[in-house]
Structure formats: C-alpha cells, structure tokens
Design a binder for these strands. Sequence first.
DNA 1: AAATAACTCAACCGCGTACAA
DNA 2: CTTGTACGCGGTTGAGTTATT
Length: 283
Amino acid sequence: MGRSPCCEKAHTNKGAWTKEEDDRLISYIRAHGEGSWRSLPKSAGLLRCGKSCRLRWINYLRPDLKRGNFTEEEDEQIIKLHTLLGNKWSLIAGRLAGRTDNEIKNYWNTHIRRKLLNRGIDPATHRPLNDADNHAQDQEVQASAAATNTVSFASSASAAIVKQEQDTSFTSNSTIFSVVGENNTKVGKGTMLERCPDLNLELTISPPRLNEPDEQFKNMEKSLCFSCRLGLQNNNHCNCGNGSNIGNISSGNRNNSTATSYDFLGLKTGVWDYRRLEMKYGQ
DNA sequence: AAATAACTCAACCGCGTACAA
DNA sequence: CTTGTACGCGGTTGAGTTATT
C-alpha cells in the first residue's frame, strides 16, 4: 500500500520554531484543543506540517511540562522502568509526570547510559559488562522453560537489575499474571541478586499455577501488590501498604471477588486491557 | 583568543498501527 | 476484506552550546 506524505512538503517551514509560531500554536490549541493535527496548521495559520506541530506541542509547549534537570529519584525511576520496558520511551514517560518521551530518550542517551556504564552495567541489557558466559547459561535454561502466551514488553533490553525479585507473579483473582525471569526461577524474598541475570521480564498470561509455590513466595504474593512486584514501590499505585501511597485500584473494592482493574504503568488495565498489551507488544 | 572536539536536545524521518470509508 | 488517512512512536540528525586544547 502506498503511503501518502504526512503533509505538503512544499510551502512548509522546517527547523527551529519562532516565538510567533509558538504563540500561534498555543493560542489555537487553547481555543480548539489538541488533535486533528493534519488540519491544524492550516486552521492555525502555520506553515508547518501537522506532525511538526504535534511534536512541538507535546515536547515543548504543553503547559504541564516540568522542564529543568532530572532529579536523582527520576534517574532511578527511569532506570527501573527501562529495565522493565526497554526503549518504550512513551510508556516510561507516562510514569514520570511532566516529562516527555523525547526528553527521557535524550536524557537516557546522554546521561543515564554513561551513568550505568560507570557502574559497570550494560545500559542495553542492564547486565554487568563482560557477562557473556552468564548470558549463555541463562539462554540454556530458558530453552527448557514452559511455553506460555507471552506479552513481550521489551524486545531487546529488559533485564532486571538487582534488588528486585525475579518472579513478580501476582494473582488477580482467577488469573495469574507473571513477570518471570529468563531462567524461570525464583529468588527468595529479600534476596539480592549479586549479578544481573538476563531477565526477559516478559508478562505472561497463563492459567493459575498448579504446583504449590514455596512458603516464602506464598507470603510474598499475599503481601505485595503488583506495583511493588514491579519494583515500583514508591509510586502512587501501590495498594499493599509496602509502597508509600494508597493504591489506585479503579474498581473500588480491593477485596471484591469480581474482576479488578489496575492502573498498570499508567494504562488503566483489566483483564482485557492486558490483551491489548499483548496485541501491541507481542512479537 | 581561536580552533575544534564533545555534548545536548529540538526537530525530523520513516514505520507500524488504528480506524474509517 | 481492502485501501487510505491520521496519529504515535522510536531512531536519527544536526544546529547550537560548552569544554578543552
């Protein structure tokens, strides 16, 4: 299928935006709201392509943008989210108020990458540098792991870094969602990984586990909410009390036996929404 | 002070996907 | 079901800025 150009290339400005263009865009969006990017430039009297307008608004002009330097907390949050999601910058940005995907992507490439390299961690895999042997071992074990329907959250990166339980399965009433390590094994509660196994951290949808989990894992599953299991203890979606804030369970009654939906990584989710994730991220 | 290397980040480009016709 | 359009995303580029020699 042929693809039409996103806009008329002729008669459009390119490069840096002028103050006047910014003002026009801001006042137009204030009056008419976001959206209809293709027709916006003409309506707003801008000689820009719609795509360019959208980008300018989202990355620079939006009033809710934070701007300014990233804090240490934000750094760590980005690293943690990148461990889970890989280069899904928009998803990562969704978890950081006032930050854009472009901003985070740039910041990752210019600062955090270097920071991780200085720590001796490969920013692409979150594994210690020169860890090829371990990787081969992990792959071997993975080959024997049981097959499940898989939601691949990150195709390339996705390796867990220390201080995070490898098996972050949680039970949502009738369905078990598992975020499992590549070697499909669990590490006891409180165990710190001394090295970074090449965790795939794929979200899997599978029937409830039949075999009895270890006692310590039963306890862990009872005491930690999904948010905490993802290593996001400090976010405002924690609802188990182990994190800092009251959670954000949208169905209201946490103990209700009916389906419960969670605000997962900024996406209002329930059982069906996980399927949407599968469609989007499944390979 | 000048040259140039390194860095930053706004903007661009191409592709994939959702959706309407 | 097919086709066309619009949008959103991730990778890349390059102009401007800062640091170093």
